[in-house]
Amino acid sequence: MFEIDALRLLVTVAETGSFTKAAVRLNYTQSAVSRRIATLEQQSGGALFERLPRGVRLNPAGRALYRHAVEVRDRLSRAERELAVLHAGRGGLLHVGAFATANISLVPAALRALKQVSPDVEVVAVEGPTGALMERLADGALDLAVVSDYPSGLPSADGVTTTVLCEDELFVALPRGHHLAASGMVDLRELRDEAWVQSAYGDRPTMLADACARAGFEPRKIIRIAEWAAKFGYVAAGLGVALVPSLAAWAIPGELVLCRLTDPALRRTVHIALPADPLPAALRLRDLLHDAGD
């Protein structure tokens, strides 16, 4: 296995044509250069340079290794530049996660602002439930995530810190022809006979189950639909009603009405989650998310 410093030294000796000149350029002693090249030649299985009366030049084996050494040097230089840009927050990849309704308007607004101030940052967006996002942060697969504590609390993850971003009130979506659509505020007990359109992530408690339990009843019927656009379609068709976070209000179609709920506790807190050593671009996005959430 060749050492990277030895390959760099090979390139410098080849470019200067002299152990002495390479030593001056790299701030080595001439004897240190000779020893390192001798070791490299031993590892290579033979001589790499022709020793001339005045200096050295690569032999065929040396020219073969030189081509690979230049490629390694150039790749390392590119890596160093990319890392410098990444850690300075001016570019590189930024892996961002969020739960579904945060991706309707909150996160896109912040990412649009990030693109304006840091156009060289390339965002890789991931959507998922809060628990999965926290795990990916702990594993180093995400650089920032927007997560929620409702209804089962905010899960902890090693090395992940969270800060409150905003409060997200829960509304009920009704078709415009519903007899409660014009009331503006609804007690969930008035909807105990309705079918409810909702989705669930595996066995995770749902906002609907928690809200109905607080109101003293269980949903008569649940229609399980995963995507928000399809949920809205079912409600618009009069097939059921749905709980809708305020973050999703921007996407509500005209056929629906959002009504507030009388229980003030029916809300969730949205958090920004970061790893222990966040990237500068992640911190910049955190600030932009606060701006978008105000």
Rank of each mutant, 00 (worst) to 15 (best):
L165E: 14
T163K: 02
I272P: 01
L266S: 06
G184R: 07
G131W: 02
V24L: 01
S34K: 06
L133T: 09
K221S: 15
I4G: 00
I222A: 13
S199T: 14
G240Q: 07
K231H: 13
I223H: 08
E167N: 11
L111R: 12
R57W: 02
T262A: 12
A251P: 06
E41P: 03
P175A: 06
G91N: 08
D294G: 13
L289F: 00
H179Q: 10
A195H: 04
A125M: 15
V123Y: 13
T12I: 12
Q42K: 08
V13I: 11
G202N: 07
K221F: 11
T130G: 03
N103G: 14
A64Q: 12
A22H: 06
I222W: 00
R75F: 07
A211S: 13
A226M: 07
N103E: 15
L144M: 06
F19V: 03
P151L: 12
P119K: 11
E50N: 13
V11N: 06
S18L: 03
A61F: 04
L261V: 10
E127H: 07
L26V: 06
I223D: 08
L133Y: 11
M134T: 05
L247K: 03
A61W: 05
Y150Q: 15
R224G: 04
I37K: 06
R63T: 03
A79N: 04
F217E: 12
R57V: 01
G46H: 04
S44Q: 06
L9P: 11
P253Q: 00
T269G: 02
S31W: 01
R90Q: 13
Y150N: 08
L279G: 10
C166N: 08
L174T: 09
A47W: 00
A109Y: 09
G128I: 06
R204P: 03
R8F: 02
D120R: 15
V172H: 05
L165G: 13
R286Y: 00
A38I: 03
T163S: 14
V24C: 00
L243R: 07
A248H: 03
P275D: 00
R224I: 01
I223W: 04
L114C: 12
A132V: 05
R67W: 07
W228R: 10
R63I: 05
A242P: 04
D187G: 08
R81F: 06
A100D: 15
V160N: 03
R224T: 14
A209E: 15
A109W: 10
Y150R: 15
V197D: 02
G153R: 09
A213C: 04
T206I: 06
M134D: 00
L86C: 02
A22K: 00
E169P: 09
P205G: 09
R35S: 05
V126N: 08
E127M: 08
F19R: 11
A237S: 14
H87K: 13
R220Y: 07
L65S: 05
E169Q: 12
W228G: 06
